[in-house]
Write a protein that binds this DNA or RNA. Structure first.
Length: 201
DNA sequence: CCCGAGATTGACT
DNA sequence: GTCAATCTCGGGA
């Protein structure tokens, strides 16, 4: 069981978003395998960081390998991992394959069907108990734990969900065939494999 | 100051 | 398929 090296998060957001697929994300021991991500950076009009720093997105401009947690639609929390070659980059964690603490997640989620425990950015923060209190925390220390895992054989790529600016950019990444994705990917399939940070345990 | 848009979700027709 | 819930931000009055 190996942690993701800190320098991994200094790579560009697209590479990090791909490379996180297959890794295990735990929060206080609860979580699962990352199966879906999206990448953002300051050059991207869809990114919260595009128009500069505000009180909400401040942690996006902090050091890499920390969490950026923001409130979505006034109701939900969304978890990003800060990364990039320049300040202002992040990867949104959109879905997990739940493997640790399923009972805790089910309680927090209100006895949902298993597939909806962690499938969706708002759902997974609720299942793991992540909120604004955890904004800015480092990812290599409790309560977070990030463990490298087996690289997926095939990564699917497509447009990001729920955005209108720069909507055509192919910056959503998923493990092909996973039943834990928040939504399907249509036909845009990439056979590119991920970089080397996901060697098997 | 007011108001619309937004990296969402769940309830409902 | 439609729609409301309810924070944060930014643009216009």
């Amino acid at each position: 069981m190996s942690s993701l090296p800190p320098q991994f998060f200094a790579l560009d957001a697209d590479t990090v978003a791909r490379g996180l697929l297959g890794a295990t994300l735990l929060f206080q021991g609860v979580g699962g395998v990352i199966v879906e991500t999206e990448s953002y950076d300051t050059a991207d009009p869809a990114s919260h960081s595009h128009k500069g720093r505000t009180s909400r997105n401040a942690s996006m401009f902090g050091v890499v390998a920390t969490a950026y947690v923001y409130r979505s639609y006034g109701i939900h929390w969304c978890l990003n991992l800060v990364c990039g070659t320049q300040p202002g980059g992040a990867v949104l964690i959109r879905a997990l394959h739940p493997t640790h603490g399923l009972d805790v997640m089910a309680t927090r989620r209100g006895l949902d069907t298993e597939r909806l425990l962690c499938g969706g950015p708002g759902r997974l923060t609720q299942a793991l108990g992540i909120s604004i209190e955890h904004d800015g925390l480092p990812l290599d220390a409790e309560p977070f734990q990030l463990i490298a895992g087996a690289a997926p054989a095939i990564v699917v790529v497509g447009p990001r969900i729920g955005i209108t600016k720069n909507a055509a950019a192919l910056r959503r990444f998923g493990i092909a065939g996973s039943r834990w994705l928040s939504r399907g990917f249509g036909r845009e399939v990439s056979t590119q494999s991920v970089p080397r940070y996901n060697e098997g345990h």
